[in-house]
Nucleic acid binder design. Structure first.
Lengths: 126, 126
DNA sequence: ATATGTACCATGTTACAGCATGGTACATGT
DNA sequence: ACATGTACCATGCTGTAACATGGTACATAT
């Protein structure tokens, strides 16, 4: 795994990991079924904490880019190629954008929108 | 104006002002057309900064609870009674709630929703 | 002159959330 | 015994934004 982590970057480490693994899949350097380094292994190689790598893996699995098979290790998902292109963030961003635009049009202050947002997110009640 | 400001409270000063003025309107202590103290006057009485009172007045006017008539001073809005009951925050909260609920259902992490939200709000582009 | 609301420049403090880290522990199956 | 992913306990750093403050200035109209 040729992964480069930039500690100085403002991009979170787990996000750098996700981006680079997705990129490797898209470029064909990692094909469906290929094995990925274990969490502990990769964390050790990159001098990262296990949790950081685990977080990246967890998100990647949720997006069906990788597959964890318990004790058997982690592998590239069969549909990784296309799934790595689908960016959940874009979907999230679009939906939020329209909602926020509507609120701004209603005369709500950005500050008020932030406060309401924080209130909703903190109290798991959605 | 019998307004009590609690410096120790976690409720922002401008929010305390808004709440108490709305309350005065709802209880009939302030009727439509009544004059309100000037920004500088009220700020002086309560030992607050002009900006803090101005912020409260600005929000109150946006909600059509008060009316500023330039150099002529500030007065209670004709429809202040009902407008003081309408809480824009509730509207904002409801709209955001549904949007967020949909995103969570899509599998988005709270963390990701926060990130997308921050990105949208910081880049005035909506 | 005086007073109104409003606008711009700016600062410091505080609170919160994300990020990353550490350690320990578990069920799983080789 | 060993390694896998996963889960819980916890801490400290950092950046951001809200809050409140200060000063100055303007057009308005009495």
């Amino acid at each position: 795994m040729q992964i480069t982590i930039d500690i100085e970057s403002s991009v979170p480490l787990f996000a750098q990991l996700i981006a680079q693994i997705k990129q490797a899949v898209q470029q064909g350097n990692k094909k469906p079924g290929d094995a990925l380094p274990s969490i502990r292994q990769l964390a050790n190689d990159l001098n990262l904490n296990n949790k950081t790598v685990a977080k990246a893996y967890r998100l990647l699995e949720r997006d069906c880019v990788i597959q964890t098979r318990g004790y058997r290790g982690t592998y590239v998902h069969p549909d990784a190629r296309e799934n790595s292109l689908v960016d959940l963030n874009e979907l999230v961003t679009e939906k939020l954008k329209s909602a926020i635009a509507a609120l701004r049009a209603s005369g709500a202050t950005d500050s008020e929108i932030r406060v309401a947002f924080a209130a909703i997110m903190s109290s798991g009640d959605a």
